[in-house]
Amino acid sequence: MCGAAQATAELDRLNDRDLSDISGQGGIYLSGDISINEMGGPIENSYFGRCDDPDKKCGARLAYRLKEDGGWMVLDEIRGNFSFEGLTLRVRTIDSGFGGDGELFSRDVMEIGLPNVVRYNDVRFKIAGSNLPRPTAPGFRQTDILAVEMQGEVIMEGNLLVFPAGNP
């Protein structure tokens, strides 16, 4: 005769004193798969535009401002397949290393952990500068700086550190 033993546990509140003895790590663990108007995929996507019309934009757009009163840097017409498993986000203190500069810096940075399962396939995008974030805004002007197309699969690993700008 087979039987299963049941285990029950009661949840109890922890007070501040009990919590002070507990340590752990904070952060975020992400996994996902994103496809944006893949090459060889459907020619139309109502959100990202038609890819068969050379006069129209096709793909996703990421615009960010470098200074409050400055222009916009743009990753435009992003297309391809991106997948990742175990991508991590956490805050890390830099207070040593970097050829002695870490001790002088002595601040927190955001660390994006890139495990060896970050992949992208058949990707293309443009790096550009623009006066406005949205191409549909009146008076919009954009200057394309560089067009990138990568066919095949790329696997990334390591950590990407995002340093804050300005003085502490």
Rank of each mutant, 00 (worst) to 15 (best):
P115F: 14
V162E: 05
K126D: 00
L75W: 07
I112W: 03
N116F: 10
I112M: 13
L132C: 03
S130H: 05
G70M: 08
V117T: 09
P133C: 07
E85P: 04
K56D: 14
R65M: 12
F82V: 03
D101K: 03
G158V: 05
D144T: 01
V118K: 04
L62G: 08
T93Q: 12
S83M: 11
S83H: 06
V74P: 00
N121K: 02
S130M: 13
N131K: 02
G70Q: 02
L75T: 00
G129L: 09
I145M: 06
G139P: 13
A137K: 15
R65P: 05
D95L: 02
G100L: 11
L161C: 09
R90W: 02
L160Q: 03
I155T: 15
A137N: 15
K57D: 13
D144F: 01
E68G: 11
V109T: 15
F82K: 05
D76Q: 11
E153Q: 15
S96L: 01
E103R: 08
V91P: 07
G80Q: 03
P115R: 15
R61G: 00
G99W: 10
D122Y: 10
D95Y: 02
G102T: 08
P135N: 11
E103P: 00
V117K: 04
E77M: 01
A63P: 05
Y120K: 02
F84V: 09
G102Q: 08
L87Q: 05
F163L: 15
E149G: 14
E111G: 09
P135L: 11
G152L: 05
D101G: 01
G70T: 03
E103G: 09
D55E: 06
G102C: 05
T88L: 12
L75K: 01
V118T: 06
I127A: 13
V123T: 14
M156R: 14
L114S: 10
N121V: 01
A165P: 01
G59I: 02
V154F: 07
A147Q: 14
G70A: 04
P133I: 14
G80N: 08
G97F: 05
G100I: 07
M110T: 12
P138G: 07
T143R: 13
L114H: 04
R134E: 15
R141D: 08
E68I: 10
E77T: 04
